[in-house]
Design a binder for these strands. Structure first.
Length: 493
RNA sequence: GGCGACAUAGCCAAGUGGUAAGGCAGAGGUCUGCAAAACCUCCAUUCGGCGGUUCGAAUCCGCCUGUCGCCUCCA
């Protein structure tokens, strides 16, 4: 069964076939770096991260490019407000973007082109558009003439006629545009703002031209996949298509993918509505809805438990549920580290679990069927949870009863499968997360001594003393398990 | 107003013609001196509403209701 992806261009799912067999070129619109990323950004980049990981797992070589928009009114405003420079602001938020994404285990793109590095490519593109009659200069600005582009509106499913009918509220007189739907390719310089020389006078690029120029410069005229938030379909992606296809005479992208919005109380999370929660606030415990640090993997789970094209409502309950769910998945992922030795697994398997299961493994088949269907991560996660739950249960049996039900070999197989598939979705447990036990100064002998004392107390029916010892052990992270046959087991929590 | 999505249990969520995955939460039970932990079991005769097609529909068609997104910066 082939991988199918929903293509906004045709508004339905379509089998994925790259231009060059085995290789995928992919571009996703990055952030404008004037502030910290919020959950809406996290959702988008987590989604593209999974797409990319999945393509790689499916055997494709993926070349992934994601831009930084480092010149923009908002960056300039921020710089002005802080009394600093545009470069200082954009550099800061680029750094913070990486910090946030690394916490969420989003893989780095292969390239991160910036607008300010592509002014020459932008000039070249605008020049070509002007030469072909798609662009005109007016008062130091250069505009794209949408009427010249026959397919304008194809991606977003709208026509110029209906757009003009709807654009009644705006002040059209104040612009030099020939048609209200025309958009700026180049904006004339304003006083005190960074500007670059150009054949049309000093100024800076318009909003959409950057992506067209950078895609062509880094990936070529036509790419396989172009991704972005659903709110970018119009006008941003529509305009990218108009620019690139007019200049190159070739399709810009064969597959257009768009993720759904993150909502808060049913409303889109956005800067302008002020209802956003930044990634770092959530991770740092600074979100009022859940005033404790949230494990980044729980955030990843929160995002991937919903399908990428549907709206994702951000609520306290949903985050809390994801935090709990992550505990289950985590227990499954840690199974080998916790119990591999007790099960006498070969040390090499415990240390390098990522050996690929066979393609006919039923777990893998189910996982792949879900993911092949337009990246159905909720369906794929069901497979991971069944594996994780089973392992968690067997781990508990081992701790509480001394042995599991399944054979060590079978458990090893399941653990390897879980580790393998989890990594395709980007779920990982940091190495040090299971070693922070707080068992204080007590060594095993001391613990055994205390448990012996408690047993004596219990036999004498001195339950006050027995409970006191149990509490004492619990305080340093030792759980005592009384067993039906009278024996006592203990373990570090 | 135009264009486009979505509506499944307390919450999140899959399922696109064959009789409701998975997770969280919850309930009961076993065990125990009591706990805790663990284990076992249960938890949508029903998929926003009303019609239609079909042997059969959450799944297809029509209408209605509700919610959201885009049309302005936006992941």
């Amino acid at each position: 069964m082939p991988l199918t992806l929903h293509n906004t261009l045709i508004k339905r799912k379509q089998p994925f076939t790259p231009i060059a067999p085995g290789r995928v070129t992919m571009y996703c619109c990055g952030v404008t770096v004037y502030d910290d990323c919020h959950l809406g950004h996290a959702r988008s980049y987590l989604g593209w991260d999974v797409l990319r990981r999945y393509l790689r797992w499916r055997g494709y070589g993926v070349h992934y490019v994601q831009n930084f928009t480092d010149i923009d009114d908002k960056i300039l405003n921020r710089a002005k407000a802080e009394g600093t420079t545009m470069v200082a602001v954009s550099e800061r938020y680029i750094q913070r973007y990486f910090e946030d994404m690394h916490h969420l285990n989003v893989m780095d793109a292969d390239e991160y082109p910036r607008v300010t590095e592509h002014i020459g490519a932008i000039h070249e593109l605008i020049g070509q558009l002007a030469a072909k009659g798609y662009a005109y200069a007016a008062g130091g600005d250069v505009y794209y003439q949408v009427e010249q582009f026959a397919n304008y509106g194809q991606l977003s499913g709208r026509s110029l006629a209906t757009m003009q009918a709807g654009a009644s509220g705006r002040d059209l007189a104040a612009t030099a545009k020939a048609n209200p739907a025309d958009f700026a390719l180049w904006k004339a310089a304003k006083p005190d703002e960074p500007a670059w020389d150009s054949p049309w006078g000093p100024g800076r690029p318009g909003w959409h031209i950057e992506c067209s120029a950078m895609i062509r410069a880094r990936l070529g005229a036509t790419i396989d996949i172009h991704g972005g938030g659903g709110d970018l379909v119009f006008p941003h992606h529509e305009n990218e298509i108009a620019q690139s296809q007019a200049a190159n005479g070739k399709p810009l992208a064969n597959y257009w993918l768009h993720n759904g919005m993150v909502t808060v109380n049913g409303e889109k999370m956005s800067k302008s509505l002020g209802n956003f929660t930044t990634i770092r606030d959530l991770l740092d415990g600074a979100w009022v809805g859940y005033p404790q640090p949230v494990d980044p993997m729980a955030v990843r789970l929160f995002v991937l438990q919903g399908h990428y094209r549907k709206p994702l409502d951000f609520t306290q309950d949903a985050i809390a549920a994801s935090i709990n769910s992550w505990q289950t998945l985590k227990a499954g992922l840690l199974f080998g580290d916790r119990h591999g030795v007790a099960l006498a697994w070969p040390a090499a398997n415990i240390q390098s679990p990522l050996q690929a299961p066979g393609p006919d493994d039923p777990w893998v088949e189910r996982f792949q069927a879900a993911m092949d269907d337009d990246l159905n991560t909720p369906g794929a996660l069901a497979v991971l949870f069944e594996l994780a739950k089973g392992l968690q249960r067997e781990g508990n049996r081992l701790v509480h009863e001394g042995k599991p039900q399944s054979s060590p070999d079978r458990l090893l197989e399941q653990w390897q499968t879980l580790m393998h598939l989890a990594q395709v979705l980007g779920f990982e447990v940091p190495d040090d997360s299971d070693t922070d036990a707080v068992s204080g100064d007590l060594d095993d002998a001391a613990i055994a001594g205390l448990i012996q004392q408690r047993q004596i107390a219990r036999q004498q029916r001195d339950f006050a003393t027995a409970d006191e010892i149990r509490d004492q052990l619990a305080a340093v992270g030792i759980a005592v398990v009384d067993q039906p046959d009278g024996a006592v087991r203990w373990h570090r929590q």
